[in-house]
Amino acid sequence: MSQLELRGIRKTYPGIAEETLKGIDIDIASGEFLILVGPSGCGKSTLLNTIAGLESITDGAIVLDGQDISTMEPKDRDIAMVFQSYALYPTMTVRENIAFGLKIRGLPKADIDREVARVADLLQISHLLDKKPSQLSGGQQQRVAMGRALARRPRIYLFDEPLSNLDAKLRVEMRTEIKKLHQRLGTTIVYVTHDQIEAMTLADRIAVLKDGELQQLGTPKEVYDTPANLFVAGFMGSPAMSFVPVTVARGERGPEAEVRGEDGRSLTLPLPDYLADRVGQRVILGIRPEHITQPQAQKQDSRLVATGAFTIEVTEPTGPDVIALIHLNDTPVHCRIDPEHPVTWGESAELMFDMKKVVFFDPETEQRIAPH
C-alpha cells in the first residue's frame, strides 16, 4: 500500500492557451479508493495519465511514498493502469497476457506460474487461462486486464473508465467485484469515471473536477449531502438536484419562502434558522427528489416539514419508487414517491417537503451557503 500526493498539478498543451489542469492538490492515503469524476473534458483522464507518466506535467509535483516521481519514466514508477479498452494482446492466451509483465521483469517461471494462478483464482478466471481474448465476453476481458495489473503487485493501481464498455447489468456486477477486490487487498486505487453512481458506490473519497479545477474533495456522503457549489450539487445524484429560486422571508416561526406551482397554488416552506440574516434576499434552494415525497405521519411534527398539493406533470415508475415531476417557481422539480402511494400525471397530489437536508446556494457566487 502506498501514499500518493498531487501537489499543484498543472498541465498546458502547446498551442492551447487555457490550462487543462489548473493546480490540482490531492493527498491520497495508503489503501484509499479515490475516484476522479466529472463531465467529459474536465481533465480527469489527463490527471490520471500524468500519475502514470504517460503525460508530462507543466508544473507541480507527483510524490509517491515521499519520492518525487514527476519526471520518472512510466516503467520506473511501479504503477499499474487498467484502460477503458482493456488493451489485451490478441494473439496471447489469458495466461500469457497476465504473465507478460512478469516475464518482462525477468521473474523465474515457477514464480510467474504461481502468481498467474493466484490472480486467476482471485478473479475467478482460472477456467479461461488457455483462451484468447477474442473468445471472451466484455466482462471476462475486463477481469483479465485487471489480472494483468494485479499480477505485478504495483504500489498504485490506476483505472481509466474500466466499465464504460460494458452493458448496464454487467457494469453493476463488475462494480461489485472491484469493490470486493479492494476490500480484500486494501490496495491504493485512483479511478476515473464520468458515472456519478459508480463514484458514489465505489469511492472512499470523490474528487469532482470541472474545467481542470478541483471543485470538491470529500466522502460520497459529504459530496452528496453538502455539495460545495451548484455544479457539484447538479452533477452528483440521479435524478439530479433541483434548483428553485426563492426569496427569504421572515415568518412567525423562523425564515420561510414561498413556492408556486404551474397551477397557481402556492406553499410556504420553512427554512433553516441560519438563513435568518438573508431575509429579503434571493437564494437558490437545492432540493433532491427524496426530500419531496408522499405525506409521512412520523415527520409531520417537525418545524422543517411542510405539506401542499401540486399538479403532477410526468410520472416515471422505476420499480422501488416513482419519480414525479412538478414545477415550482417556473422550475422543473423531481419528487420521489412510494409506488404504494399512487400519483397520476395531470392530477393534483398531496406532497410533503422535508426541508431538513435541503441546501441553499448564493445566486451570485453559486457557492453553498454554509450553516453558521
Rank of each mutant, 00 (worst) to 15 (best):
M1C: 02
Q3A: 14
K11G: 06
A17L: 07
K22H: 09
G23R: 12
G31N: 08
L34S: 04
V37E: 01
G38N: 04
L47A: 02
A52Y: 04
L54I: 06
E55L: 03
E55V: 03
S56T: 15
I57G: 00
G60Y: 08
G60N: 10
L64Y: 04
G66R: 13
Q67S: 10
I69K: 03
T71V: 13
M72T: 05
E73L: 14
E73S: 12
P74Q: 10
K75Y: 09
I79K: 05
V82C: 02
F83G: 04
L88G: 04
V94S: 01
R95Y: 12
E96R: 13
F100E: 05
L102I: 14
K103F: 00
R105P: 11
D111F: 08
V116S: 05
V119L: 06
A120N: 08
D121I: 02
L122R: 10
S126C: 02
K132H: 11
P133C: 02
P133Y: 07
S134I: 07
S137C: 08
G138P: 09
Q141S: 06
Q142N: 07
Q142H: 05
R148E: 01
R152T: 07
D160Y: 09
S164W: 03
D167H: 01
A168E: 00
K169S: 03
K169I: 09
R171L: 03
K180S: 09
H182W: 03
Q183Y: 05
Q183C: 00
Q183G: 02
R184D: 06
R184H: 01
G186W: 14
V190K: 03
V192G: 03
I197S: 09
M200R: 13
D204L: 06
R205C: 09
I206F: 06
V208W: 07
K210A: 08
D211P: 08
L214R: 06
L217I: 13
L217S: 01
D225E: 14
P227Q: 06
A228L: 02
A228V: 08
F231A: 10
F231E: 07
V232K: 09
G237K: 05
V244L: 05
V246M: 02
V248C: 05
A249K: 14
R250G: 01
E258A: 06
R260G: 00
G261M: 02
L275I: 13
L275V: 10
V279H: 08
V279D: 03
G280W: 14
V283D: 01
L285Y: 13
G286P: 04
T293S: 11
T293Y: 07
Q296E: 15
Q298V: 14
S302L: 11
A306I: 11
A306E: 11
T307P: 06
A309I: 14
E313D: 11
T315K: 07
E316T: 15
E316R: 12
P317G: 09
P317T: 14
P317N: 12
T318R: 14
P320Q: 12
A324I: 13
L325H: 15
I326F: 02
T331Y: 02
V333T: 06
R336C: 12
P342T: 12
G346I: 12
E350F: 03
L351W: 01
F353S: 05
K356I: 10
D362L: 10
D362C: 11
D362R: 09
E366P: 01
Q367F: 05
